[in-house]
Design a protein around this nucleic acid. Structure first.
Lengths: 225, 225
DNA sequence: ACACGTTCTCAGCAGGTTCTCAGGGAACCG
DNA sequence: CGGTTCCCTGAGAACCTGCTGAGAACGTGT
């Protein structure tokens, strides 16, 4: 089992390398992002461990490069709890798993085994609901192939709705998941944004996928009509 | 986000419960396996945390039970490092993730978030009474496959009746379970709504499932005729 | 400083939903 | 059969919810 480890703290990298080797993995280590990305593209690893904070390049950037090169090696991200990116972002960018530092070595091994076991699916990392496609890596949304320009808030809402497509989501849920906890306004913002979104992802295409469920919330249905 | 925590060490359970509540989760705690399994089957949790060492029942037995009940709530197992089952077993037993004690609280939260995000693989969580089907996730009701549009109150009543199908439920029970405690009107509302419902779920389909039991209440029968 | 895009608030409207009431019927009892 | 009780139903009033246009506030880049 070949593992790529990209970690700039040399001590930590060395101790992980030694531990994984003891567990029977074959480990390649890169101490910076450029080398890491290159190794990942050139060699068939079973799994890659990517630190998020790297000199020069962000872990995210490396991941992006790897994915754009159509390499679907499962990636586990190492994130710092106080980092500027919170954990949810790691998934958005196509990571398959993540651990927050500090983590126990045993947990790391378990997660790697799980990732390897699951394997690398031949998948483009996009969300698809009917003819609506969202690419988290490029941060783009298309309907019927045509690109749709969305503002950050709109994008966040669509993403949340697509993750929960064909389910009713309440305005409160949307507020919880798209707005930060500090927001103290009324539900009405959500209604307003639904109006914006309909004008962008439904009206121009004569579709009706963003439906209102009175008294409950909204539902993004995959069945277009 | 609702979490079920099954852990017999009361102190640990309480401290986890408190921490998760602070993180915005809604937490139910069970101190033994029997209660835990029952809760897991009866309620729709987003994720469950299961200790592997429990009085009476093993964690994996509980897991087995809830999976057999077709409940696909993601499960995170808590294993002891020196336990008779080592970590790899947890995956083999159908757990979606596990942590080895002692674990850091931050790691626990991160793992729960990851599990919730990944979500339950499939959930055919529908209520069915005869040809009447209610899907709580989509908030839809169908009879003989045709969708039936219901208002929030109507929907709530149907849901309650379906949960208690083939039993007589009194108007008072319906009032208690569908209207909030502040309601001070008469029983007549229920009669009115039964009229509405019959017009929507029985009359158009030539069925008679919403029957009146004079002096007692109403009964939703599964036998259509 | 200015133009622009984005976010958010507000108020009014339209239509759906809830509930009350009163009259008519159906079931039950002696 | 007559009286009583219980249930059904149509009409309508009060209420609530969600949609929308206008515009203010804010930040960003020029």
């Amino acid at each position: 089992m070949r593992v790529l480890l990209v970690e700039d703290e040399k001590d930590l990298a060395e101790s992980i390398r030694r531990g994984l080797t003891n567990e029977g993995f074959v480990v390649d280590v890169a101490h910076d992002g450029v080398t890491g990305a290159w190794l990942a593209v050139e060699n068939p690893y079973d799994v890659a461990v990517l630190d998020i904070m790297l000199p020069g390049k962000h872990g995210y950037q490396i991941l992006k490069e790897i994915r754009e090169a159509k390499i679907w090696t499962p990636v586990l991200m190492l994130t710092a709890k106080d980092g500027e990116y919170d954990q949810t972002d790691a998934f958005d960018l196509g990571a398959d798993d993540y651990l927050t530092k500090p983590f126990s070595f045993i947990v790391l091994v378990a997660h790697l085994r799980a990732l390897i076991r699951r394997g690398a699916p031949e998948r483009p990392v996009t969300l698809t609901v009917g003819s609506l496609v969202l690419d988290p890596v490029r941060r783009t949304v298309t309907r019927q192939g045509s690109p749709v320009a969305l503002t950050p808030k709109e994008y966040a809402i669509v993403q949340y709705l697509m993750r929960n497509h064909d389910q009713v989501v309440s305005k409160a849920e949307i507020l919880d998941n798209v707005w930060d906890a500090a927001y103290e306004g009324s539900d009405n913002v959500v209604e307003v944004y639904m109006g914006y979104l309909r004008k962008k992802i439904d009206t121009p295409f004569n579709t009706t996928t963003l439906t209102t469920v009175r008294g409950m919330g909204y539902c993004l249905v995959s069945d277009e009509r």
